[in-house]
């Protein structure tokens, strides 16, 4: 962690020169990246400081735009904090029930095979209440892309244990840390899905740092491309920070994510073109 975090310690008498950031530079320059992602209607949202979900959203929308699918995409959104992001997403959406998005996406894809179908689900949504739906959708080889935002907690209820909560992780209903004897083991959903014959592409990414975000984007591009090629079910799991649900300072979110969740839910591609990676 950076030593610059003591914000009150810096300011006027600092010898380093502070560059103004309230307006674009007046000299010759090239804009490299804009505030809000592609395909958004507004930049503001009500998710907590330090949340990893908007980072994932940015990559999803940018990927759709970059692949030329902006006018062919349909998103099916589950129930979680990320549901609030639907008001800023400028793609067609269907709001599904908790856990049911893969089924809803299935029906939509069957009637609109020309569309790029993706789901946006949290770990409580997909791996708890909707586990059978995502597994069956994958096993059928439905040509849709399911996207899991995995932070290991029910963020919206205030930090409760989900099926992906790692052993030792403190949640409001595993206050001494998740104990396998009391609470069972976490489900590694990506690994489970990769083993199914119907899946074409399975990858797990993490947005705990810039390189991780860039990798997330690559995996999303590959998943969507797999769908566009008609290869079957594609899946991208994205580990995201939830400092509020983890009861830690926002700045510690990326480190906690990488160290705790990332150690169990290992980042990387698990299946490409229907073939297990390293298998």
């Amino acid at each position: 962690m950076s030593g610059d975090r003591d914000a009150e310690g810096v300011g006027a008498g600092d010898p380093l020169r502070v560059v103004p950031t309230d307006a674009p530079p007046s000299g010759a320059c090239r804009r490299k990246g804009s505030f809000t992602p592609s395909l958004t209607l507004m930049g503001e949202h009500d998710l907590c400081p330090g949340c990893g979900e908007p980072l994932a959203l940015r990559q999803i929308l940018d990927s759709i735009e970059a692949l030329g699918q902006a006018q062919r995409a349909i998103g099916v959104v589950g129930i979680g904090c990320y549901t609030a992001l639907t008001s800023l997403m400028d793609v067609d959406l269907i709001q599904a029930l908790h856990g049911r998005a893969p089924s809803v996406a299935t029906g939509a894809k069957r009637m609109r095979p020309e569309c790029l179908l993706f789901t946006l689900q949290g770990d409580g949504d997909m791996v708890n209440e909707g586990l059978q739906e995502v597994i069956h959708t994958a096993a059928r080889g439905e040509n849709v892309t399911c996207i899991l935002l995995n932070n290991g907690v029910f963020g919206e209820t205030g930090g409760h244990m989900t099926a992906t909560t790692v052993l030792g992780q403190r949640t409001k209903n595993s206050i001494e840390g998740r104990d396998a004897r009391l609470h069972g083991h976490p489900i590694l959903i990506g690994d489970l899905l990769a083993r199914l014959d119907g899946t074409a592409y399975v990858a797990r990414a993490s947005v705990h740092d810039a390189a991780g975000v860039a990798r997330t984007r690559r995996f999303l591009d590959r998943a969507f491309t797999s769908q566009l090629k008609g290869q079957g079910f594609s899946f991208v799991e994205i580990l995201t920070m939830c400092p509020t649900g983890w009861f830690i300072p926002t700045a510690e979110g990326p480190g906690y994510l990488d160290r705790e969740l990332g150690a169990v839910h290992e980042v990387g591609e698990l299946k490409k073109d229907g073939v297990l990676v390293g298998g």
């Binding site: 592609s38 395909l39 209607l41 759709i64 735009e65 699918q69 902006a70 006018q71 062919r72 995409a73 349909i74 639907t86 997403m89 400028d90 793609v91 067609d92 959406l93 269907i94 709001q95 939509a108 609109r112 569309c115 790029l116």
Partner: peptide, 15 residues
């Protein structure tokens, strides 16, 4: 929803 209005500011949300 048919996806066609994505990015136009008039995309839909069936909710």
């Amino acid at each position: 929803v048919d996806g066609r209005l994505g990015g136009t500011g008039r995309s839909r949300n069936v909710n």
